[in-house]
Amino acid sequence: MLKIKDLSVAVEGKEIIHDVNLSIHSGETHVLFGPNGAGKSTLLMSIMGFPKYTITKGSITFKGKDITHMSLDERARMGIGMSFQRPPVVRGVKTRDMIAACLKQSNDSVEIAKLADKADMSDFLERDINYGFSGGEIKRSELMQLLAQKPELTLLDEPESGVDLVNIALIGNLMNDLLEKNCPIQVRKCMGLIITHTGHILDYVNARTGYVMCDGTIGCVGDPHEILNTIRERGYDECIQCYLGRIPPND
């Protein structure tokens, strides 16, 4: 289980996330909506443990352990994995090397070939990671790495943005593998937290909880399909009202 309690996060001295509370139980996938600049990516980066994101208040507990001050790589080894919205190009490091790293430094070429085939990335194995990759290729590559890593908690930052309709199905299936197929229901431990603007991924993963984030705070909690419909019809105003509603009246 992932438990986030009263979490505030600052980036370069500026507080961006304020008092966020959120829990994901084993086997659940939650969805995070919210307008541009709301702080969604910041929240994911903070859960992953990037050093630039300073936790100024609150705590993160994962699998019963307080990881608030645990380093990025320790968190990864504990079972947290994340797809990057804009991963860096690393010249000289091949896509193959990245998968090997995700497979706990194992160079199992059969396994690597299988994963690449599944993500339709076979032609990319000998290429420098992310170098000249198109937007959709980056998404596939990120999911392929996560499939190798097999995290218990998967954090996906807009996995479907910029992906064409044919590739959406491929991406959707990869996510389904990651969060469901690879985790048999009886013993399902996989957890997911997915940022999306379009909601397309709701067709591929079984998500029953959604949040709307505005100005660094979680405003609404509810069924993700309903939230999506509200946003489609009325934009984020509803969310903001819901958020304002929680602020105690002045006098």
């Binding site: 992953m48 050093p51 790589d73 080894r77 991963p87 690393v90 890593q149």
Partner: peptide
Amino acid sequence: EYLMARGLT
């Protein structure tokens, strides 16, 4: 950090 997020020290 990108590589560390995949579990490397």
